[in-house]
Simulated assay, not measured.
Amino acid sequence: MKKIFAKIASITATSAVLSVAIAAGSNNSAQAIDFNFNWLGNGGYSATGSFSYDEATAPTIISESGSGATNFLKSLNVSFLDPSKNLLGTYNTVAGGVSQSSFFAFNFDTSTKKLFGPLDVAGGTGVIGEYFFQGTVGDSLQLRQDVDQQGTSTLVDQNSGSIQVSKVPEPASMLGLVALAMLGAGSTLKKKQASC
């Protein structure tokens, strides 16, 4: 029995040290924080994407627009799917802190973790037929397809402005959960071995 407790204590100590080391290592670099977002239109079309920014330097409200260097956003990508879950297109609207679209609009409250106001992501890079996602969060969001790069587009799907945002778990948090699961599995295995 003492050996089991010694092994459990050893696993716990190792996991704790590893978690602290990872957390300390991430504190020395930029505090990148990642979020996922999901949208579902009334007709079954959907958008799924992610964005990131430096948590250490970002203000409470992040507002970005237009092409060129962004102020705080590091990346933003989005993929569109039809009702049968076939991929319509994937767009890297912001890569390496640079927006690719003059139509780009993005507003995010870092304290409430919610998108708000005008939103325009995806197309806008000069390719006829590209998809883009625009509107006002909480009012109306539309998936559209460009027809001529002259401002003409067709409505593909829309909803009442609802979009979900979720934070991506940090690696140190995930490691802690894995360590806890391993501890539980090891304890269960030892109990089974002891009862045999």
Score class of each variant (00 low, 15 high):
3 K>V: 06
5 F>H: 11
11 I>Q: 05
14 T>I: 12
18 L>F: 08
18 L>M: 12
19 S>G: 12
21 A>G: 10
21 A>C: 11
26 S>R: 12
26 S>Y: 04
27 N>S: 15
30 A>Q: 13
33 I>Q: 11
36 N>G: 03
43 G>R: 14
45 Y>H: 10
46 S>F: 02
49 G>A: 13
54 D>M: 12
54 D>C: 10
56 A>G: 14
56 A>I: 07
58 A>T: 13
58 A>C: 10
60 T>S: 14
62 I>T: 04
63 S>L: 03
64 E>L: 06
66 G>N: 15
69 A>H: 05
70 T>H: 13
71 N>F: 01
72 F>A: 07
73 L>E: 02
78 V>S: 12
78 V>F: 02
79 S>A: 15
82 D>W: 01
83 P>H: 05
84 S>W: 00
87 L>M: 12
89 G>D: 04
89 G>P: 10
91 Y>V: 01
92 N>T: 09
99 S>V: 08
102 S>G: 12
106 F>H: 06
106 F>A: 05
107 N>K: 07
108 F>G: 13
111 S>K: 15
114 K>Y: 00
114 K>A: 07
114 K>E: 08
115 L>P: 02
116 F>C: 09
120 D>A: 15
120 D>Y: 13
121 V>G: 06
122 A>T: 12
123 G>V: 00
124 G>C: 04
127 V>Y: 03
129 G>Q: 05
131 Y>V: 05
134 Q>S: 13
135 G>R: 05
138 G>F: 04
138 G>S: 14
142 Q>A: 08
143 L>E: 00
144 R>G: 07
146 D>S: 11
148 D>Y: 00
148 D>G: 12
149 Q>Y: 01
153 S>Y: 11
155 L>I: 07
155 L>Y: 00
155 L>C: 08
156 V>L: 05
158 Q>K: 14
159 N>V: 07
162 S>D: 03
168 V>I: 14
169 P>Q: 08
176 G>Y: 02
177 L>Q: 14
177 L>S: 15
183 L>S: 05
183 L>A: 06
189 L>C: 05
189 L>N: 10
190 K>L: 13
191 K>E: 08
195 S>E: 14
